[in-house]
Amino acid sequence: MNANIRFIFLGLFISVLSFSSALAQDNDEELELYPDDFSDACVADGLQIRATIEGVTAVGIMKLELYNSEDGFLSKKGRLRSIRDKAEDGPMMMCINVPEAGTYALAGYHDLDGNRKLKKKWNFTPKEPFVLSNNIEFKSLRMPKFEEAAFEVGPQGADIVINVVDLQDD
């Protein structure tokens, strides 16, 4: 009887935690967005990347990271800048100013729980939906290369469309 009571209380405790987590996810105040997180104002013909992101839902935060070389691609040391906005039902537009015309790549993820951390599976592939410029398809368990995601940004900027990929669906 004592073990059954403990089991019931454990079940209730887990239910309360799950319910609390679901409520926190719907509460905009729980999202950690800082003033320097937000994307730049979109300007037609400005020196920026204007990214239209397809497949986002209005849950959590959408994050994009800007890179300009293979050295440090997809790592913190190679990142030029990152931006975050509250996720909206897609298509969602995010703009990021670039320092000069050149070759760049974008990577990012849909932070569903808004905790500012990408959840990963045991094999280090993303558990949360993600995006890569040029909509690279994963054909193997290797990391994507900069040249696969790279695109040119001219003096009038660049308009790109990137699709959210959710490996949970695979």
Rank of each mutant, 00 (worst) to 15 (best):
A24V: 05
A24F: 06
Q25I: 14
D26W: 10
D28M: 06
D28R: 11
E30Y: 12
E30L: 09
L31D: 03
E32T: 12
E32S: 11
L33V: 05
Y34S: 11
D36F: 10
D40R: 07
C42W: 02
V43T: 13
A44G: 06
D45G: 06
Q48W: 01
Q48F: 02
Q48P: 02
I49L: 08
T52V: 12
T52F: 00
T52W: 04
I53K: 02
I53T: 01
E54R: 11
G55Y: 06
V56K: 02
V56R: 00
T57L: 08
A58Y: 08
A58K: 11
A58R: 10
V59N: 10
G60R: 01
G60L: 03
I61K: 04
I61C: 01
I61H: 02
M62W: 02
M62S: 07
L64F: 07
L64A: 06
E65M: 12
E65Y: 06
E65L: 06
E65I: 05
L66R: 00
Y67S: 03
Y67P: 01
Y67K: 07
N68R: 09
N68T: 08
S69E: 11
S69R: 08
E70M: 07
G72Q: 03
F73A: 00
L74Y: 08
K76H: 10
G78W: 07
R79C: 11
L80T: 06
L80F: 07
R81F: 05
R81D: 07
R81Y: 03
S82W: 12
I83N: 00
D85T: 15
D85E: 15
A87E: 00
E88R: 14
D89W: 07
G90T: 11
G90R: 11
P91Q: 12
M92C: 07
M92P: 00
I96L: 14
N97D: 15
V98I: 13
P99F: 09
P99E: 12
E100N: 11
G102F: 10
Y104R: 00
A107F: 11
Y109W: 15
H110N: 10
L112K: 13
L112G: 07
D113M: 10
D113L: 13
N115Q: 11
R116E: 07
K117N: 10
K117Q: 14
K120M: 15
K121F: 15
K121T: 14
W122N: 12
F124T: 13
F124H: 15
T125L: 13
T125M: 15
T125P: 03
K127T: 09
E128Q: 14
E128A: 06
E128M: 09
E128T: 09
P129Y: 09
S133W: 00
E137H: 12
S140W: 10
S140R: 09
S140H: 08
L141T: 09
R142N: 10
R142K: 13
M143C: 02
P144T: 05
K145V: 06
K145T: 13
F146C: 03
E147D: 15
A149Y: 04
A149L: 04
A150L: 07
A150P: 02
F151E: 09
F151G: 09
E152I: 14
G154L: 14
P155I: 13
P155L: 13
P155S: 15
